[in-house]
Computed example of a mutant assay.
Amino acid sequence: MTMRPGHSGSLAILALAVSSALFVSATTAGADEVQPFRLCADPTNLPFSSDNPAQPGFYVEIGQALARALGQPIVYDWYKSYFGKRTVRVTLLGKQCDAMIGLPRSDDFMGPSVIFSSTFARQGYALVTAKDRAVNGIDDLRGKRVAVQFASTPQNLLAARDEIRKVTVLSPEEGMKALEEGTADVAFIWGPVAGWLNKTAYQDRYRIQLTEGEGLTWDAAIGFARTSTELRDRVDAVLPQLAPVIADLAAKYGLPGGQPVRFGAAHAALSGVTTGNGTAVAQVANVVATETKGDALPKNAEAVNSGKEIFNGTCAHCHGPDAVQSEKKIDLRLLRHRYGDDMHTTYLKTVHEGRPAKGMPSWKEVFTDDQLESVYAFLMTVQVESND
C-alpha cells in the first residue's frame, strides 16, 4: 500500500484519541464504583462478633444493617480484640478498616485519635438469678453467695459488705457455672456474655437483670479515626432508623434489657477502659488493690507498670488478670519455681516462638524486645514458690 504524506501522523492522532477516551471511560467507572464499608471485628467473640456467616454476632449484624442503609457493600478486617487498645491502633487507626462497633463512647478512650457515633446501646454488668428471684438493690444480696469476676467493678462494690459472701471467678463462664452447680446464689458478671450463655447453653432458665452505676455500665458507640468525620456523620444520620433492628438483634443474642438495677459507686479507682475477649470488646473495669508478691518492687517501676499494662491487655485472657491464675500449667507466678536460673531464657524463647500446639501465638512480630522485657520485669514481681 502507498502511504500518503501525513497519513502516519493522522493514525497517531487517532490512536491517541482512542486511548484517551478509554482512559476517561475507565477513570469514570472507577469514580462511580461504590466503596465498601470496612468493618473491624473479632472473629471469635460471640455474642458480639464471629466470622461464621451463620452466626455473625450483634456488632457484625449492626454493621451489615449500617452498610445496607449507607448503600455500600461490607467487608471485614478480622483481628482479635484481646490485644486491647493495640487492636484499635493496628486496625482502625492503621487504616485497615473504617469503623469499629462497640467502643465505649468516652473521650478518655483513645481520644482525640478516635471519634464516636451516637450511642446505640448500653452495655454493663448484670445480675443473674433463678427466674423466681429478683434483685432490687444491694441489700437484696445480704446472706447470699454472689459470684463476682476478679478485678471487676462488682467485686469492688461488694468488697466491704461482709454480710455478702463473695465467690470469685475469672470469667462470666465460671460465674454461670457456679450458679448452675449451686456454689453461688447470684452471679454478678458481664451482662452480654451472661445473656448469651443463658440463651445458648442454659435454655433461658435464668433471670438476667442489667445494672447501672459508676463503673457498671457504659454507652456503646461506633468508633472511627478522627479523619473520618464525614463517614461518622453519615452513620449518625441513619442510626435512628436502625433502632428497631438493633433492639431485635439485642434480643436475638440475649443481651440484657429492661429497667436496670441501680447501685452506688464502687469504692475503688477507675482504671479507664480495657478491651478483652474474656469479657467484651470493651468494658469499664476497676483497679483492685493486690498484695505485692515475689520480688520487692524493682528499681525500674516504670518498666514494670508498662509490662503489667501489656500483660493485662494481651495475656490476661489466658493467664489471669495480674497473672493470678488457678491452673498451675498456665500460672505464670510459678516461672521461677519451674525454671530456676533458666527462667529468663525460657520466657524469651516462649514469647518469641509461641506454643502454637497449645494455642499460644508468637509475639515477636507484635511487641518489641523492650516491651517483652517489661512484661518479664512485671512477672518477676509476682513470682511465688508454690500456689498450693
Rank of each mutant, 00 (worst) to 15 (best):
A26P: 02
T346E: 03
A126L: 02
A121D: 14
P73I: 02
E365P: 11
V128D: 07
E230D: 14
A29P: 01
L239G: 06
T292S: 11
M343R: 02
G313T: 06
K85Y: 13
Q72G: 06
V193T: 14
A269M: 11
T183L: 03
I330L: 12
K308P: 00
G264M: 03
H267T: 15
S152P: 08
T44G: 14
T217S: 11
D77P: 07
A121N: 11
L297Q: 10
V148K: 15
Q155D: 11
Q55R: 12
H337C: 11
G359N: 14
P321L: 15
N45H: 05
T275S: 15
I246G: 08
A159G: 12
K177N: 12
P53G: 01
A285F: 11
A15E: 08
K199R: 08
I13M: 07
K328L: 15
F378P: 00
A41D: 02
A237H: 09
T229R: 13
F224P: 01
G57Y: 02
V60L: 01
A268S: 03
P112Y: 03
T275A: 15
A323C: 09
T229E: 15
F263G: 01
G111A: 14
I222R: 04
Q283R: 11
K80F: 15
G6Q: 05
F120D: 06
F188D: 04
K329S: 14
